[in-house]
Amino acid sequence: MIVSLSLGTANIPIAEVWSIVLHSVTGWGAEPISSQAYEQIVLQVRFPRVVLAILVGASLSLAGAAFQGVLRNPLADSYTLGVASGASFGAAFLISFGWHYVIGQWTVPIAAFITALLSLFIVMRLASVNGKFKIETIILAGVVVQAFFGAVVSLLVSLSDSVVNEIVFWLMGSLALRDWSFSMMLAPYLAAGALVLMGFARALNLFSLGERQAAHLGVHVERTKRIVLILGTLLSAAAVSVSGTIGFVGLVTPHLIRLLVGPDYRLLLPLSAIYGGIYVLWADTMARLLLSPTEIPLGVVTAFLGAPFFAWLLVRHKRKVAI
Rank of each mutant, 00 (worst) to 15 (best):
D264S: 07
A112Q: 14
L5M: 13
V50K: 02
I227F: 08
Y79N: 10
R316Y: 08
I135N: 07
A151W: 13
V3A: 15
G218F: 00
F200N: 03
D264C: 06
A238I: 04
R316S: 12
G104L: 05
L62G: 12
G150R: 11
Y38D: 07
P297A: 04
A151I: 11
L231Q: 01
G250V: 03
R72N: 11
Y279C: 00
A187L: 15
L117D: 11
N130R: 12
F89C: 10
I274G: 00
Y265L: 01
E222K: 06
A141M: 13
L175D: 00
A214Y: 10
F207K: 03
Y189F: 15
R226A: 13
S119Q: 11
I139R: 09
G244R: 03
G69T: 05
I138G: 09
A176R: 01
E39T: 08
R258G: 11
A15C: 12
V152L: 11
L43R: 06
P270I: 06
V168F: 02
I135Q: 12
L289T: 11
F310I: 03
Q68C: 11
W99H: 09
L177D: 09
A307W: 04
F97W: 08
G86E: 12
Q146K: 14
T294G: 10
A112Y: 13
G57T: 02
R49M: 13
P74K: 04
V228W: 06
E16Y: 00
V56Q: 03
L190I: 05
R178Q: 07
M184T: 08
A287F: 01
I246P: 00
L217C: 13
I110M: 11
Q146C: 12
L291R: 05
F97C: 01
S96P: 08
L75Y: 10
L195S: 03
T294M: 15
V164A: 07
V56I: 08
R125G: 13
V144P: 01
L256A: 05
M286S: 05
L291F: 10
L60S: 03
I135R: 09
Y38C: 01
F248H: 05
S35M: 04
I95N: 13
V252N: 06
H317N: 15
L206P: 04
L290T: 04
L271M: 09
E166S: 14
H23C: 06
V300S: 00
I54N: 07
A92E: 04
L314A: 12
S119P: 13
R258H: 13
P109K: 08
L120E: 03
L186S: 01
T302G: 05
V56F: 03
L271H: 00
V157N: 15
I246S: 01
V196I: 13
A58N: 02
E166A: 14
Q68D: 12
A192G: 14
R258P: 09
M198K: 08
I110C: 07
A147S: 14
R46C: 02
S174K: 02
A283I: 02
L268G: 03
I138K: 08
K318W: 12
V168G: 01
A91S: 14
V25A: 12
V21G: 00
L22I: 11
L43W: 07
K320G: 10
S59K: 05
M185Y: 15
L171F: 01
P13A: 08
G86D: 11
